[in-house]
Every structure is written in C-alpha cells, then in structure tokens.
C-alpha cells in the first residue's frame, strides 16, 4: 500500500488557542477515510492545517504528502501537489464564471494549457451527473448559489480538478436526502485506486451511500478511536459521550 498522507503528532493553534493536540493519521492510496466528531472538536482545523491555511499555526509535528513534508508549503503549492478541499462554506467570487474559474484553476494546477472544448464537455458531463442546472457554470462563482448548489459546485470542482486527495469538510451537512445521494455519487465517480478521500462530518447519513474503509473519532484535538464502518453506526446510536474527557 502506498502512503498518500501521513500526519505525525500534530499540534496546531488558532491564535493562542490550542486546537489539535497530538493528532496522527495515515491515508493510503485507494482508501476512503471518515473523521467524525462533535462540534468544535477540531475537524475543520485539521483540514485547514493540512492545507497550511495561514490563519492556523502548526506548533509541532508534521504533515507529509507522498513522502514529502508539506508543513511550510504555500496553499497553492499544496493544491498543485494534488490536495483538494471541499469547503464547509464556499466563498462567493463575482466577476468570473464558474466555468472560466475552473478552466483557470485547471491550467494552474496542471501547469498546462487547458483544451477548452474537451474540458467543457467533461465539466458539462459532471454537472449532469450531479443534477446541477447546466446554466450554473455560466454564473459567477458561487454568487447567489443556494447552500446545496454551492456544495454540489465543490464536488464539481473536485471532479474537474481531479486531485489525489480530496478532503470534504461537512459537504453533506445541510443537504436533503436526494442531494446527499448525488454528492455520494460524485464521490464514487471520483474514487479510484490511485487517489483517496477524507470525509469530515458530524453526521452519519452520507456513510449509508458510500463504501468507507476507516472511521476515526476526533475529540478535543485528538483521534481517540479508529475502526471500520460499524464504528459510525455505534456513534450514531451512542453519540460521543464515552469519549468526552
């Protein structure tokens, strides 16, 4: 098995506040991981710290991607290595259409000119699979999109940019049953033996539609338990009570 992401004994702060307190996590190619945990446990922090968001400070420990330490790489360089994140609240950017943005980002990530016609057909194919209004990609990036449209647009970007590791932060939250099915379908389409998915959620609904390899429970900045799919069921029944410090 080939390691894609390896996080070792990671401590991270927001301002003075300690949030991650010795977190370890390894993700291999071909795997789907789920991180679950109560609100405020540090799940979004984990995603942001992997991406070296300058709003967070790594205090100690390391993040390695394909064997390379990416602790100090800038956000765009990490994206170019093949990491993607679906945002809990995607930003609205006026002045550029979703498709033109995707084309621009694809060019940056691959460092190659994008074959526009081909890429457009591919993106249109994805919007169809994701039950998105085909006109949405002509509209300014996320501007005036509904919550559900924004989440689907994140999955569309994942499919179009085709990263090696996709981190999905609460992509399922706030979606109705149909949208959750569609998002799961998007993840299935993306998934192959060479890439991996890290799903962050506080909710088990999406797991009903997806084949998952590992479930981790994140409480108070640490992974306190790792198991297989049934761990999710257990948490659904009992909540996080037994893990509280």
């Amino acid at each position: 098995m080939e390691k894609l992401l390896e996080i070792k004994d990671l401590y991270a702060n927001v301002g003075e506040k300690e949030i991650l307190k010795g977190l370890n996590l390894t993700i291999n190619k071909g795997e789907v991981h789920v991180v679950m945990g109560p609100n405020g446990a540090g799940k979004s922090t984990l995603a942001n710290v992997i991406f070296n968001n300058p709003a967070y400070t790594k205090v100690s420990g390391s993040v390695e991607f394909e064997g390379e330490n990416i602790n100090d790489l800038s956000v765009d360089k990490i994206a170019k290595k093949g990491v993607f994140m679906s945002f809990q609240s995607p930003e609205e950017i006026p002045g550029i259409s979703t498709f033109n943005f995707l084309k621009f980002a694809k060019g940056k990530i691959t460092d190659k000119p994008v074959k526009v016609f081909e890429f457009k057909k591919q993106v249109e194919g994805f919007t169809e699979e994701l039950n998105m209004n085909p006109k949405l990609i002509e509209r300014n990036l996320n501007v005036g999109f509904s919550g559900g449209e924004k989440k689907k647009n994140e999955i569309l970007q994942m499919l179009a940019l085709n990263p090696k590791l996709a981190i999905l932060d609460e992509t399922d939250s706030g979606l109705d049953v149909d949208a959750i099915k569609t998002v799961s379908k998007g993840i299935e389409m993306y998934k192959n033996d060479e890439n991996a998915v890290l799903i962050i959620t506080h909710n088990t609904r999406i797991l009903k539609h997806l084949k998952v390899d590992f479930v981790h429970v994140l409480v108070d900045g640490r992974i306190v338990k790792t198991g297989m799919g049934e761990l999710a069921t257990e948490i659904e029944e009992n909540g996080y009570k037994e893990y509280n410090a």
């Binding site: 991406f51 300058p54 765009d76 994206a79 950017i93 943005f101 980002a105 990530i109 970007q157 940019l161």
Partner: peptide, 16 residues
C-alpha cells in the same frame, strides 16, 4: 483572507 485561501486552494497564486 478566507477568499484568498479559497482561491489558493484551487491552485491560484496569491497574486492571481
């Protein structure tokens, strides 16, 4: 900063 982070996570340089 959130907007910058969002766009950079898609491979755009800070300048872009």
């Amino acid at each position: 900063d959130k907007e910058i982070f969002y766009l950079m996570s898609r491979g755009l340089s800070e300048e872009d």
